[in-house]
Protein backbone atom coordinates (compact mmCIF):
# COMPACT_ATOMS: atom_id res chain seq x y z
CA UNK A 1 0.00 0.00 0.00
CA UNK A 2 1.33 3.41 -0.97
CA UNK A 3 1.19 5.95 1.84
CA UNK A 4 0.90 9.55 0.74
CA UNK A 5 1.69 12.55 2.95
CA UNK A 6 -0.94 15.26 3.04
CA UNK A 7 0.89 18.63 2.82
CA UNK A 8 -1.75 20.22 5.08
CA UNK A 9 -0.44 18.00 7.87
CA UNK A 10 3.03 19.54 7.80
CA UNK A 11 2.13 22.58 9.92
CA UNK A 12 0.23 20.73 12.69
CA UNK A 13 2.92 18.05 12.90
CA UNK A 14 5.66 20.68 13.22
CA UNK A 15 3.59 22.45 15.89
CA UNK A 16 3.06 19.20 17.83
CA UNK A 17 6.76 18.29 17.63
CA UNK A 18 7.66 21.81 18.78
CA UNK A 19 5.13 21.60 21.62
CA UNK A 20 6.47 18.27 22.88
CA UNK A 21 10.07 19.48 22.51
CA UNK A 22 9.23 22.69 24.40
CA UNK A 23 7.59 20.71 27.21
CA UNK A 24 10.65 18.47 27.53
CA UNK A 25 13.01 21.46 27.34
CA UNK A 26 11.01 23.14 30.08
CA UNK A 27 11.48 20.19 32.41
CA UNK A 28 14.79 21.30 33.98
CA UNK A 29 13.29 24.75 34.60
CA UNK A 30 10.24 23.30 36.34
CA UNK A 31 12.39 21.56 38.95
CA UNK A 32 10.99 18.42 40.52
CA UNK A 33 8.19 19.55 42.76
CA UNK A 34 4.71 20.95 42.32
CA UNK A 35 5.25 22.41 38.83
CA UNK A 36 6.25 19.03 37.37
CA UNK A 37 3.33 17.29 39.07
CA UNK A 38 0.96 19.95 37.81
CA UNK A 39 2.45 19.70 34.32
CA UNK A 40 2.10 15.91 34.30
CA UNK A 41 -1.57 16.09 35.30
CA UNK A 42 -2.17 18.75 32.66
CA UNK A 43 -0.62 16.51 29.99
CA UNK A 44 -2.81 13.57 31.07
CA UNK A 45 -5.90 15.78 30.80
CA UNK A 46 -4.80 16.74 27.29
CA UNK A 47 -4.52 13.06 26.34
CA UNK A 48 -7.97 12.34 27.76
CA UNK A 49 -9.64 15.37 26.15
CA UNK A 50 -8.10 14.65 22.73
CA UNK A 51 -8.93 10.95 22.88
CA UNK A 52 -12.55 11.68 23.91
CA UNK A 53 -12.88 14.17 21.09
CA UNK A 54 -11.37 11.69 18.62
CA UNK A 55 -14.52 9.60 18.89
CA UNK A 56 -17.22 11.74 20.47
CA UNK A 57 -16.19 15.08 19.00
CA UNK A 58 -15.87 13.72 15.49
CA UNK A 59 -18.90 11.40 15.42
CA UNK A 60 -21.23 13.37 17.69
CA UNK A 61 -21.84 10.30 19.90
CA UNK A 62 -21.31 11.78 23.37
CA UNK A 63 -19.67 9.17 25.61
CA UNK A 64 -19.94 9.55 29.38
CA UNK A 65 -17.87 6.42 29.88
CA UNK A 66 -14.44 7.66 28.81
CA UNK A 67 -13.17 7.44 32.38
CA UNK A 68 -13.70 3.67 32.19
CA UNK A 69 -10.91 3.22 29.64
CA UNK A 70 -8.58 5.49 31.61
CA UNK A 71 -9.46 3.56 34.78
CA UNK A 72 -8.98 0.17 33.16
CA UNK A 73 -5.61 1.31 31.83
CA UNK A 74 -4.64 2.33 35.35
CA UNK A 75 -5.70 -1.03 36.80
CA UNK A 76 -4.07 -3.09 34.04
CA UNK A 77 -0.79 -1.24 34.54
CA UNK A 78 -1.10 -1.75 38.32
CA UNK A 79 -1.70 -5.49 37.75
CA UNK A 80 1.38 -5.72 35.51
CA UNK A 81 3.53 -3.92 38.10
CA UNK A 82 2.20 -6.16 40.87
CA UNK A 83 2.47 -9.47 39.04
CA UNK A 84 5.58 -9.11 36.87
CA UNK A 85 9.00 -7.53 36.71
CA UNK A 86 8.26 -6.26 33.23
CA UNK A 87 9.51 -2.78 32.28
CA UNK A 88 7.13 0.20 32.24
CA UNK A 89 6.67 0.08 28.48
CA UNK A 90 5.03 -3.35 28.82
CA UNK A 91 2.57 -2.02 31.40
CA UNK A 92 1.92 0.97 29.14
CA UNK A 93 1.19 -1.14 26.08
CA UNK A 94 -0.91 -3.63 28.08
CA UNK A 95 -2.97 -0.75 29.48
CA UNK A 96 -3.65 0.63 26.00
CA UNK A 97 -4.33 -2.79 24.51
CA UNK A 98 -6.80 -3.95 27.16
CA UNK A 99 -8.64 -0.60 27.21
CA UNK A 100 -8.79 -0.67 23.40
CA UNK A 101 -10.12 -4.24 23.38
CA UNK A 102 -12.73 -3.37 25.99
CA UNK A 103 -13.86 -0.40 23.88
CA UNK A 104 -13.88 -2.62 20.79
CA UNK A 105 -16.13 -5.22 22.43
CA UNK A 106 -18.45 -2.55 23.85
CA UNK A 107 -18.55 -0.76 20.51
CA UNK A 108 -19.40 -3.95 18.59
CA UNK A 109 -22.26 -4.58 21.01
CA UNK A 110 -23.64 -1.05 21.39
CA UNK A 111 -23.42 0.06 17.76
CA UNK A 112 -25.13 -3.13 16.55
CA UNK A 113 -28.42 -1.70 17.72
CA UNK A 114 -29.80 1.51 16.22
CA UNK A 115 -31.77 1.89 19.46
CA UNK A 116 -28.58 3.07 21.16
CA UNK A 117 -28.01 5.99 18.80
CA UNK A 118 -28.33 9.58 20.00
CA UNK A 119 -28.98 10.40 23.65
CA UNK A 120 -29.37 6.74 24.64
CA UNK A 121 -25.74 6.15 23.71
CA UNK A 122 -24.64 8.55 26.44
CA UNK A 123 -26.81 6.75 28.96
CA UNK A 124 -25.46 3.36 27.91
CA UNK A 125 -21.85 4.53 28.34
CA UNK A 126 -22.71 5.85 31.79
CA UNK A 127 -24.24 2.49 32.75
CA UNK A 128 -21.18 0.78 31.29
CA UNK A 129 -18.97 2.79 33.67
CA UNK A 130 -20.84 1.50 36.71
CA UNK A 131 -20.75 -2.10 35.43
CA UNK A 132 -17.00 -2.05 34.77
CA UNK A 133 -16.36 -0.35 38.12
CA UNK A 134 -18.28 -3.08 39.94
CA UNK A 135 -16.49 -5.86 38.05
CA UNK A 136 -13.06 -4.38 38.79
CA UNK A 137 -13.97 -3.91 42.43
CA UNK A 138 -14.92 -7.58 42.73
CA UNK A 139 -12.06 -9.08 40.72
CA UNK A 140 -9.20 -10.00 43.02
CA UNK A 141 -6.64 -9.97 40.20
CA UNK A 142 -7.43 -6.28 39.54
CA UNK A 143 -8.64 -4.90 42.86
CA UNK A 144 -10.87 -7.17 44.94
CA UNK A 145 -12.12 -4.27 47.04
CA UNK A 146 -8.83 -3.49 48.73
CA UNK A 147 -7.13 -1.25 46.21
CA UNK A 148 -3.66 -1.88 44.79
CA UNK A 149 -0.35 -0.56 46.10
CA UNK A 150 1.75 0.30 43.07
CA UNK A 151 4.53 2.37 44.61
CA UNK A 152 6.27 -0.57 46.29
CA UNK A 153 6.53 -2.26 42.88
CA UNK A 154 7.76 0.76 40.95
CA UNK A 155 10.27 2.05 43.48
CA UNK A 156 13.73 1.54 42.07
CA UNK A 157 12.49 1.41 38.47
CA UNK A 158 13.04 4.17 35.91
CA UNK A 159 9.42 5.27 35.90
CA UNK A 160 9.11 5.25 39.68
CA UNK A 161 12.36 7.13 40.23
CA UNK A 162 11.08 10.62 39.51
CA UNK A 163 7.95 12.60 38.63
CA UNK A 164 10.05 14.04 35.80
CA UNK A 165 9.95 10.66 34.09
CA UNK A 166 6.16 10.63 34.36
CA UNK A 167 6.18 14.10 32.82
CA UNK A 168 8.24 12.82 29.88
CA UNK A 169 5.81 9.92 29.33
CA UNK A 170 2.87 12.34 29.63
CA UNK A 171 4.41 14.68 27.03
CA UNK A 172 5.00 11.81 24.60
CA UNK A 173 1.44 10.50 25.06
CA UNK A 174 0.03 14.00 24.57
CA UNK A 175 2.09 14.22 21.38
CA UNK A 176 0.72 10.85 20.22
CA UNK A 177 -2.87 11.90 20.95
CA UNK A 178 -2.33 15.22 19.17
CA UNK A 179 -0.84 13.53 16.10
CA UNK A 180 -3.80 11.12 15.98
CA UNK A 181 -6.21 14.07 16.21
CA UNK A 182 -4.38 16.12 13.56
CA UNK A 183 -4.13 13.19 11.14
CA UNK A 184 -7.81 12.45 11.69
CA UNK A 185 -8.71 16.03 10.79
CA UNK A 186 -7.36 15.75 7.23
CA UNK A 187 -7.80 12.09 6.25
CA UNK A 188 -10.51 9.88 4.79
CA UNK A 189 -10.92 8.32 8.23
CA UNK A 190 -11.69 11.69 9.81
CA UNK A 191 -14.03 12.66 6.98
CA UNK A 192 -16.00 9.46 7.58
CA UNK A 193 -16.30 10.20 11.30
CA UNK A 194 -17.44 13.79 10.73
CA UNK A 195 -20.00 12.67 8.16
CA UNK A 196 -21.49 10.42 10.87
CA UNK A 197 -21.86 13.46 13.11
CA UNK A 198 -23.46 15.52 10.35
CA UNK A 199 -25.96 12.90 9.17
CA UNK A 200 -25.34 9.19 9.63
CA UNK A 201 -28.04 8.15 7.20
CA UNK A 202 -26.64 10.38 4.45
CA UNK A 203 -23.13 9.12 5.19
CA UNK A 204 -24.32 5.54 4.62
CA UNK A 205 -26.01 6.54 1.37
CA UNK A 206 -22.67 7.95 0.16
CA UNK A 207 -20.96 4.63 0.85
CA UNK A 208 -19.52 5.22 4.32
CA UNK A 209 -19.57 1.99 6.37
CA UNK A 210 -20.61 3.86 9.50
CA UNK A 211 -20.76 0.88 11.86
CA UNK A 212 -17.16 -0.11 11.15
CA UNK A 213 -15.88 3.45 11.53
CA UNK A 214 -17.72 3.96 14.83
CA UNK A 215 -16.39 0.71 16.30
CA UNK A 216 -12.78 1.36 15.25
CA UNK A 217 -12.81 5.02 16.37
CA UNK A 218 -14.31 4.05 19.74
CA UNK A 219 -11.59 1.40 20.19
CA UNK A 220 -8.74 3.79 19.26
CA UNK A 221 -10.19 6.48 21.55
CA UNK A 222 -10.42 3.95 24.40
CA UNK A 223 -6.89 2.65 23.76
CA UNK A 224 -5.35 6.13 23.97
CA UNK A 225 -7.21 6.82 27.23
CA UNK A 226 -5.96 3.44 28.50
CA UNK A 227 -2.37 4.38 27.67
CA UNK A 228 -2.75 7.47 29.87
CA UNK A 229 -3.82 5.19 32.73
CA UNK A 230 -0.38 3.56 32.99
CA UNK A 231 1.64 6.62 34.14
CA UNK A 232 -1.36 7.62 36.27
CA UNK A 233 -1.07 4.32 38.19
CA UNK A 234 2.57 5.14 38.98
CA UNK A 235 1.69 8.72 39.87
CA UNK A 236 -1.08 7.68 42.28
CA UNK A 237 1.04 5.01 43.96
CA UNK A 238 -2.12 3.47 45.36
CA UNK A 239 -4.94 2.64 42.95
CA UNK A 240 -8.51 2.34 44.15
CA UNK A 241 -11.87 2.24 42.39
CA UNK A 242 -13.34 5.42 43.91
CA UNK A 243 -10.48 7.60 42.67
CA UNK A 244 -9.74 5.92 39.35
CA UNK A 245 -13.33 5.63 38.10
CA UNK A 246 -14.56 8.91 39.60
CA UNK A 247 -17.38 10.42 37.58
CA UNK A 248 -15.76 13.85 37.53
CA UNK A 249 -13.07 12.50 35.20
CA UNK A 250 -15.29 11.96 32.12
CA UNK A 251 -17.29 15.07 32.98
CA UNK A 252 -14.15 17.22 33.10
CA UNK A 253 -12.94 15.69 29.85
CA UNK A 254 -16.23 16.51 28.12
CA UNK A 255 -16.10 20.02 29.57
CA UNK A 256 -12.57 20.53 28.19
CA UNK A 257 -13.54 19.35 24.71
CA UNK A 258 -16.68 21.50 24.57
CA UNK A 259 -15.01 24.54 26.05
CA UNK A 260 -12.08 24.32 23.64
CA UNK A 261 -14.35 23.48 20.71
CA UNK A 262 -14.35 20.36 18.58
CA UNK A 263 -14.44 21.83 15.09
CA UNK A 264 -10.63 22.12 15.19
CA UNK A 265 -8.44 19.21 16.27
CA UNK A 266 -6.55 21.39 18.77
CA UNK A 267 -9.70 22.70 20.45
CA UNK A 268 -9.62 20.14 23.32
CA UNK A 269 -5.99 21.14 24.10
CA UNK A 270 -7.12 24.74 24.59
CA UNK A 271 -10.06 23.52 26.68
CA UNK A 272 -7.79 21.38 28.87
CA UNK A 273 -5.47 24.34 29.43
CA UNK A 274 -8.32 26.67 30.37
CA UNK A 275 -10.11 24.23 32.71
CA UNK A 276 -6.91 23.16 34.47
CA UNK A 277 -5.71 26.76 34.86
CA UNK A 278 -9.13 28.00 35.96
CA UNK A 279 -9.51 25.21 38.49
CA UNK A 280 -6.06 25.78 39.91
CA UNK A 281 -6.57 29.53 40.15
CA UNK A 282 -9.94 29.12 41.83
CA UNK A 283 -8.63 26.54 44.27
CA UNK A 284 -6.40 29.34 45.49
CA UNK A 285 -9.56 31.01 46.73
CA UNK A 286 -9.77 28.28 49.33
CA UNK A 287 -12.96 26.46 48.43
CA UNK A 288 -12.99 23.46 46.10
CA UNK A 289 -16.80 23.58 45.92
CA UNK A 290 -16.82 27.22 44.79
CA UNK A 291 -14.16 26.36 42.21
CA UNK A 292 -16.30 23.52 40.82
CA UNK A 293 -19.36 25.78 40.60
CA UNK A 294 -17.45 28.53 38.78
CA UNK A 295 -15.93 26.05 36.31
CA UNK A 296 -19.40 24.58 35.67
CA UNK A 297 -20.98 28.00 35.17
CA UNK A 298 -18.16 28.92 32.77
CA UNK A 299 -19.03 25.89 30.67
CA UNK A 300 -22.70 26.88 30.50
CA UNK A 301 -21.75 30.42 29.48
CA UNK A 302 -19.35 29.19 26.80
CA UNK A 303 -21.96 26.81 25.35
CA UNK A 304 -24.48 29.67 25.27
CA UNK A 305 -22.30 32.33 23.66
CA UNK A 306 -19.65 30.31 21.82
CA UNK A 307 -21.24 27.25 20.21
CA UNK A 308 -17.94 26.36 18.50
CA UNK A 309 -15.91 26.83 21.70
CA UNK A 310 -12.79 28.89 22.17
CA UNK A 311 -11.13 27.49 19.04
CA UNK A 312 -14.17 28.62 17.07
CA UNK A 313 -13.66 32.17 18.38
CA UNK A 314 -10.00 32.03 17.34
CA UNK A 315 -11.05 31.09 13.80
CA UNK A 316 -13.63 33.89 13.83
CA UNK A 317 -10.89 36.43 14.54
CA UNK A 318 -8.45 35.07 11.96
CA UNK A 319 -10.88 34.03 9.18
CA UNK A 320 -14.13 35.93 9.69
CA UNK A 321 -15.71 34.90 6.32
CA UNK A 322 -15.11 31.18 6.96
CA UNK A 323 -16.51 31.42 10.50
CA UNK A 324 -19.55 33.31 9.22
CA UNK A 325 -20.38 30.62 6.64
CA UNK A 326 -19.73 27.79 9.11
CA UNK A 327 -22.12 29.38 11.58
CA UNK A 328 -25.08 29.21 9.17
Amino acid sequence: MKLSFDPSLRRPLVMIAAGVAAALALLPVLGSGFAVTFGFQFLIWIVLALSWSLFSGNTGYASFGHGVFFGIGTYVAAAVFRSTEAPFVVALLAAGLVAGLLALVLGVAVFSSPRFAGDLFGLVTLAMAFIVMTIVSNTSFLDGGTGVFVREHTDGTWIGASTRHLFVVGALLAGLAAITAAVTSVTRWGAALRSIRDDESVAESLGVPTYRYKVVAFAVSGAIAGLAGAPQAVFLGYVEVGAVFALHIPLFVIMMAILGGMSRWWGPVVGAAVVVALREALLGLGSAEVAQIIVGVSLVVVIAVMPHGLSGVAVKVRKPQLAKEEAR
Partner: peptide, 11 residues
Protein backbone atom coordinates in the same frame (compact mmCIF):
# COMPACT_ATOMS: atom_id res chain seq x y z
CA UNK B 1 -31.23 12.18 -3.31
CA UNK B 2 -33.38 13.31 -0.40
CA UNK B 3 -36.69 15.11 -0.70
CA UNK B 4 -35.49 17.78 1.74
CA UNK B 5 -31.82 18.32 0.85
CA UNK B 6 -29.46 16.96 3.48
CA UNK B 7 -25.95 18.28 2.78
CA UNK B 8 -23.21 17.34 5.23
CA UNK B 9 -23.06 20.56 7.24
CA UNK B 10 -19.41 20.58 8.28
CA UNK B 11 -18.15 19.96 4.74
Amino acid sequence: TFQVPRPLGSF
